[in-house]
């Protein structure tokens, strides 16, 4: 009875609409984490460009992935470093 009253007055969070919304939200977190391979490649290229200003990296062993677990999405990159640079190659480094 209480259940019914709560639903009538819209106070019940377990109404099937809210269940639907929550399930949809979780499903979409995973769906949307699906980046196209082309986009991942573009991201890799950009990452290599930026990081190469500071260190020498093994470009072939570079791994970039989107990891979705626990309802969150993380960008996980594994970038083997070959050698550090003493100064950065940024053109505007001194200002």
């Amino acid at each position: 009875m209480l259940d019914f009253l709560l639903r009538v007055f819209g106070k019940d969070n377990s109404s099937s609409k809210n269940v639907a919304k929550e399930r949809l939200r979780l499903v979409l977190v995973h769906d949307r984490a699906d980046m196209s391979p082309q986009l991942i490649e573009d991201l890799k290229e950009d990452l290599i460009k930026v990081i190469s200003n500071y260190m020498e990296i093994d470009e072939n062993a570079l791994e970039v992935n989107l990891d979705s677990s626990n309802n969150t999405v993380a960008l996980v990159a594994n970038i083997p470093v070959l050698r550090m640079k003493r100064t950065s190659n940024r053109k505007e480094k001194i200002g």
């Binding site: 639903r7 819209g10 019940d12 109404s15 099937s16 609409k17 809210n18 639907a20 919304k21 949809l24 939200r25 979409l28």
Partner: peptide, 16 residues
């Protein structure tokens, strides 16, 4: 059904 809370509303869907 939307009024009853048993169907997603327009706002819910637009939100998503």
């Amino acid at each position: 059904m939307v009024k009853r809370g048993d169907m997603m509303s327009i706002d819910d869907i637009i939100d998503i």
